[in-house]
Nucleic acid binder design. Structure first.
Lengths: 195, 195
DNA sequence: TGTTATGCAATGCAGTTGTATTGCAAACGG
DNA sequence: CCGTTTGCAATACAACTGCATTGCATAACA
């Protein structure tokens, strides 16, 4: 057998470059040659690892999901054992929100892919699953009989805050204030303002 | 003077075609020739009314905003005089949410433009203003001392519900249920389940 | 030491992109 | 009736797109 290369590593490397391009200039600027240039490789190599552009896009979409999930699990792990539900929720949500410049870049890519999948329903099923899982998980952490509806609302709030943060319509403090206010409502009293 | 034509009408006609293309195939499919074909006019004419593609995009973005605003004012007008704040809010929000197929098409375009402006901050200022106005208006309708934060949250919830509706992650009933649950929280009791 | 499967670069190709340029028909003012 | 100004179509063009094809070096196995 000829020389062996870590194909997955190459693919992720290329996907990283794709995300850099998408974050800076939008998904429309994503072309084989652009991505290749951003990755510092030849255009032929990109073609070698992704037979079609769509395959590359799908792979990159998977990387975006994985990266977001990794962010969450890292934040949760940092929280220790058996955290209070409210604390846990807040941690997860702030981990997902595009609050610093790095996560903003990821967020822009995610938003671009959201618009992308809105027009290609076939590619949306994975995201679909993600939100279903998330709502179920959130519902388990919320009090009250209406946990399901509250979970759907909380998730939507998170998504909307993310969108507004990306658009620069909300500054981070405002987004966090709105989040805490909402958590106050969900968890009864107002323990966020009372130490 | 030579023959006179309603230039604005032509421009909106072209912008309409652009939105049709964008709703069906995404913003990346928007090209001068595509839009011209969708509008049933020559490519030269599109160039005649928009000197550059970017000018066309900006105009179309304005049309999207106007159309959304028109939807809201129409729904509010249908509500009669001095409606209860909660009713008014619900009416406005459901008017904006992509619940039927027509508003879904508009929503897809709006989402595409959102991703578009996220990468071109210069074009985002108009949207920025819109949400600022909206939050102020919502805040005026909400009870409690934290009306501002609640308004920001409600707007974000609306946006998130819209995104999930577009992605097909929430069916309309779930989105409306989440909205009503949130309004229940904001307005104290739970008057949505009690007739 | 061949042989061969593989990693990758280079090039070609048909189609599309945005924009500039050109040409022409029509309508109004003189 | 003529000239000018406008509305629009057509074409040209260079750049770019995704994809197919070709060629070649290299490394592992026989």
């Amino acid at each position: 057998m000829p020389k062996k290369v870590d194909a997955l590593e190459r693919r992720t490397r290329i996907a990283d470059a794709l995300m850099r391009v998408a974050a800076e200039q939008g998904l429309e600027a994503v072309s084989l040659r652009h991505v290749a240039a951003a990755a510092g490789v030849s255009a032929g190599m990109v073609q070698h690892y992704f037979r079609t552009k769509d395959e590359m896009m799908r792979f990159a979409l998977g990387v975006v999901r994985d990266r977001s999930q990794a962010r969450v699990t890292a934040a949760v792990a940092r929280l220790g054992d058996a955290p209070a539900p409210r604390e846990l929720l807040r941690t997860i949500i702030t981990a997902v929100l595009p609050l610093d410049e790095e996560s903003r870049a990821d967020g822009r890519v995610a938003l671009a892919f959201l618009a992308y999948t809105a027009v290609r329903p076939a590619a949306a099923s994975a995201l679909h699953e993600d939100t279903a899982q998330m709502t179920a998980f959130f519902a388990g952490l919320l009090p009250g009989p209406d946990a399901d509806r509250a979970a759907a609302g909380l998730l939507a709030l998170m998504e909307g805050l993310g969108v507004y943060l990306l658009g620069g319509h909300y500054p981070p403090e405002q987004a966090l204030a709105a989040l805490d206010a909402h958590l106050d409502l969900l968890f009864g009293g107002s323990p966020s303002s009372a130490p």
